[in-house]
Simulated assay, not measured.
Amino acid sequence: MSGFNLRFLGHSTVRLELGDRVVLTDPVLTARVGGLTRVVPPPPPDAYAGVDLVLLSHLHGDHLHVPSLKLVGRRTRIVVPRGAGSWLAKKGFTAVEEIAPGETLTEGGLTITATEAIHSGHRWGPRLTHGPQSPAIGHLIDSEGLRVYNAGDTDLFDGMATFGPVDVALLPVWGWGPNLGPGHLNPARAAEAAGLLQARAVVPVHWGTLALPGIRRTTRMRRLLADPPREFAAHVAAAKIATGVLFTEPGADVVLPASTDRA
């Protein structure tokens, strides 16, 4: 194995380098995402260069973002939840594959297994019935005895206990607005998830990146753009969960502890 490196690019976007492959999760790379504004600089092109595999967890616009996928490349291998492939292929992407919970695929030395996720899978939200829909998923990424869990968007569920132990979990700890709807983890529930997963380390994601322009400078929103990973770490410590919290600002490399740094 040539190395294991992680870079948190913001929101749910993480660049993973492992097993001689580069994997990108839910790429959101632009200054605007629909009606949301990016509150940190967009990642530079080198951050999403040389990607072998894109893993998409669900169809919401802050996870499946077509302009960002175009930046990665229309010929890049993209894995979507089962039922979403034809919709994305019609956008001009030529290497789209589908996967459902329990199914696996390989990419070089990596094995990727789709997992259950408790979250709306409709492109336009849980209240609408028209338009594309497919179940939200997470991913287990295995390479030479190392396991990474990419949660995507999900609420807590008992089945997480069957995924562990994992070396690193990418766990959402908030979102982009002043409140969380159903199917999300807040800092306290993310800490419970870390315990269920027996995660040796957690990278808090899904925070500090996107906001509604009209409220981004309010006192509450400024706090919500900064505090969730710190609150997550406090809940982990209070519950005496044996998980290292790899707190990383959007755009930065994740500093891996010696026990998980295989480079």
Rank of each mutant, 00 (worst) to 15 (best):
L128D: 06
A194R: 04
L224G: 02
H58L: 15
Q133Y: 09
P250N: 09
S86R: 14
L224P: 10
G214H: 09
T154E: 03
S2C: 08
R127D: 09
A263C: 07
A233M: 09
T260I: 15
G183A: 07
V236E: 05
T243K: 06
D142E: 14
W87A: 01
R230M: 10
K240W: 13
G181A: 12
P178Q: 14
A242F: 11
G214A: 14
A239H: 14
L185Y: 08
T13D: 05
M221H: 05
S12C: 14
T30R: 10
D167K: 01
G244K: 15
I112M: 10
P257C: 08
G145F: 02
I241S: 09
V22H: 11
G164E: 01
H65Y: 11
K240I: 03
P132C: 05
A239D: 12
P165R: 02
E97C: 07
D155M: 03
A100S: 14
L6D: 03
P172L: 06
F8W: 10
Y48S: 01
F93T: 02
T25I: 13
V51S: 03
R189Y: 13
A237L: 07
H63P: 00
V203Y: 00
L170F: 12
G83K: 07
D153H: 06
P204N: 12
E98S: 03
